[in-house]
């Protein structure tokens, strides 16, 4: 409940934030703090310097890319902002649908999409969803910015492609084209609770992308299942057949909420449900 002494700075610009992150050993960016402050309370981890991004208004916007092909979501955009965004509603409503089930309202009011994915807790909602949606992340450092795909972004629990002295600035999500359907489902601990297993799916003209959460330290693409569905047959039987073997391909953890076998089973069930729902939505 009580933090160790920590230095704190509140930069006024992205450049200043990056400078602070680069210059101070053990510096970490503080976004909404809904995980970081908790971890610091438990003293499970103790950054030496917190760089509070609160004043960086440019990280709080949701807009469209110049060619309108992607939704650009600032890293400091909160879940509540996503839920209420008209841009999201038009371009990729699944983001709002999923954001509205993250933790609870108070957490959604402060918790940000950037924080959610940089933490990459296996039970978090956005990592598998963004993998399924084929999102990409823009990371800025002293030498400029670079963009990585969602698959490349997630490296482990609390680990991402954001390196020392770098800052995640925005997430780009392709806008939904006609014939696209997205869904995310899973088994939670209580209504809208922590995921025990999650699955996100996006069905589009080029096929389906499926990502499973809570089964490893990063979202797992269900590539074998995706390949079996390339023909575009999203009938109940076809999707179930495609999911067979997905569980066996995973090495999920066992904990107090679910043994590994149960997680393997739930991964298949959740993947099937997510794909079926996404396909139904794709049909309109």
């Amino acid at each position: 409940m009580l933090l160790r002494e920590v230095e704190y700075a509140r930069p006024a610009s992205i450049d200043e934030a990056i400078r602070l992150l680069a210059e101070h050993d053990g510096a970490r960016a503080l976004a909404g703090g809904q995980t970081l402050v908790n971890v610091m309370k438990a003293r499970a981890a103790s950054p030496d310097v917190l760089v509070d991004l609160a004043d960086l208004a440019e990280l709080r916007t949701i807009s469209f890319s110049a060619d309108q092909s992607a939704l650009e979501i600032g890293a400091m955009v909160t879940s509540s902002q996503i839920v209420g965004s008209s841009e999201v509603e038009v371009a990729r409503p699944i983001l709002a649908e999923v954001a509205s089930t993250i933790a609870d309202l108070q957490v959604r009011n402060r918790g940000t999409i950037g924080g959610n994915i940089c933490v990459n807790d296996p039970t978090n909602h956005f990592p598998p969803l963004l993998v399924a949606l084929g999102a990409s992340m823009t990371i800025q450092g002293r030498d400029g910015e670079r963009t990585v795909s969602a698959e490349e972004f997630f490296l482990g629990v609390y680990f991402t492609a954001v390196g020392e002295g770098e800052l995640l600035t925005r997430i780009s999500v392709p806008t939904r084209s006609a014939g696209t359907g997205d869904a995310m489902t899973g088994i939670t601990l209580g209504a809208h609770g922590t995921y025990i297993v999650s699955a996100a799916a996006s069905v589009g003209s080029v096929g389906v992308r499926i990502a499973i959460g809570c089964v490893s330290s990063v979202p797992e693409r269900a590539t074998a299942m995706e390949q079996q569905l390339v023909g575009g047959d999203y009938s109940d039987a076809a999707v179930k057949a495609a999911a067979a073997g997905l569980g066996a391909s995973l090495d999920p953890p066992s904990d107090v909420h679910a043994a590994a076998d149960y997680r393997r089973h739930l991964a298949e069930v959740s993947a099937v449900r997510a794909v079926l729902q996404a396909a139904e939505r794709a049909r309109g």
């Binding site: 971890v39 438990a42 003293r43 807790d121 296996p122 482990g156 330290s217 904990d255 107090v256």
Partner: peptide
């Protein structure tokens, strides 16, 4: 300890990592 108790849900993925 507190890390063990706080981090049940992430412990095994972290160890694997």
């Amino acid at each position: 300890g507190p890390v063990g108790s706080m981090g049940q849900r992430v412990l095994q993925p972290i160890i694997n990592q």
